[in-house]
Design a protein around this nucleic acid. Structure first.
Length: 247
DNA sequence: AATCTCTTCAACCGCCTCCGG
DNA sequence: TCCGGAGGCGGTTGAAGAGAT
C-alpha cells in the first residue's frame, strides 16, 4: 500500500489540485514522483500525482474522439503486441496508455466480440475466432539478467545463433552493448523468428539497439515493412496475417 | 418527469522490474 | 546477495452522464 493512506486524498481531482501539480511539474520537471506531493503541497500519493499528470495534465495530450487512422493503428498494434497499452500509446502521439486501453475496452473489444459471434471477414482488421495471438514481450535486460542469459547461452551454444535454455531463449548473439531479448515461450520465439529473421540476421548480423530504444526500433521495423518488403497494409490485410497463428 | 439501465473513462489497486545501499 | 523504495504497467472499479422506458 502507498504510504500513509489514512491521510491521503483519493477520488476526482479538483481544479486547485491540478493547478498545484502543474506548477510543481513546471518548476521541478517530471520524475521524482515521491517528492511531488510534498513539493506541490498536495495530499495525494505519488502514483496518483504521476497518473494525473501523464493522463490528463501533460501538455500535448490529445482528447476527444479517435481518428480512423488512430483506430486502425491501435487494432494493428494490438494484433502484434496484445494488451501492451503503453507501447501502443507510444505510437499514437498525444494519446495515453489509459486512453488507448479505455478505447479498446469500450469500443474495439465489443466489436471483436461481435465479429467473433457473427461473421468472419478476412479483410477485416478484427481477429478471427480461434485465432491465437502470440504476444511478444520485448524486454530490456538489466546487466544482471543479461549475464545470466549470456552464461546459459554460452553453455548451450551449439554453433547456432540461438541457444535454448530451460526457461528462455536468447535470440541472436548479443552485441557490444550486451542487449538482447528473452522469451519464455516457444510460440513467442517462433513469432519473433518469423518477424525478425532476415538473411542478414541469419548470417549473424543482429539488431543494433540500445537498451533504451529497443522497443522503438523493433516497432519501427514492424511499422514500415515486413521481412519480404510488404507494407504494413499488405501485411495486415492479407487473408492469413503472418503474425497470427491459426491452430 | 421519474426511474432504470447502459456506457464511458478517470482513478485506484496490485503486481512486477529495476536500482541503489 | 539481499532488501526496500521508486517507477511503471495492466486490470479493474465506480461515479457521472446519456439514453431508454
Amino acid at each position: 500500500m502507498e504510504g500513509s493512506s489514512l491521510r491521503v486524498r483519493k477520488g476526482a481531482w479538483t481544479e486547485e489540485e491540478d493547478l498545484l501539480l502543474k506548477k510543481c511539474i513546471e518548476k521541478y520537471g517530471e520524475g521524482k514522483w515521491h517528492q511531488v506531493p510534498a513539493r506541490a503541497g498536495l495530499n495525494r500519493c505519488r502514483k496518483s500525482c504521476r497518473l494525473r499528470w501523464l493522463n490528463y495534465l501533460k501538455p500535448n495530450i490529445k482528447r476527444g474522439h479517435f481518428a480512423a487512422d488512430e483506430v486502425d493503428l491501435i487494432i494493428r498494434l494490438h494484433n502484434l503486441l496484445g494488451n501492451r497499452w503503453s507501447l501502443i500509446a507510444g505510437r499514437l502521439p498525444g494519446r495515453t496508455a489509459n486512453d488507448v486501453k479505455n478505447y479498446w475496452n469500450t469500443h474495439l473489444l465489443k466489436k471483436n466480440i461481435d465479429t467473433f459471434t457473427k461473421t468472419s471477414n478476412p479483410k477485416s482488421h478484427q481477429l478471427k475466432p480461434n485465432t491465437k495471438v502470440i504476444k511478444p514481450r520485448p524486454q530490456i535486460l538489466s546487466k544482471r539478467s543479461f549475464l545470466v542469459n549470456l552464461d546459459e547461452y554460452n553453455n548451450n551454444n551449439n554453433n547456432n545463433n540461438r541457444a535454448e535454455t530451460s526457461n528462455n531463449v536468447v535470440l541472436a548473439n548479443c552485441g557490444d552493448n550486451h542487449d538482447g531479448y528473452c522469451f519464455p515461450d516457444h510460440d513467442e520465439i517462433m513469432w519473433w523468428e518469423n518477424m525478425m529473421m532476415n538473411e542478414k540476421e541469419v548470417d549473424g548480423h543482429q539488431l543494433q539497439c540500445s537498451a533504451n530504444d529497443i522497443d522503438e526500433s523493433v516497432l519501427d521495423q514492424i511499422m514500415n515493412e515486413d521481412n519480404f518488403g510488404n507494407t504494413m497494409d499488405e501485411l495486415f490485410l492479407d487473408e492469413e496475417p503472418w503474425n497470427v497463428f491459426n491452430p
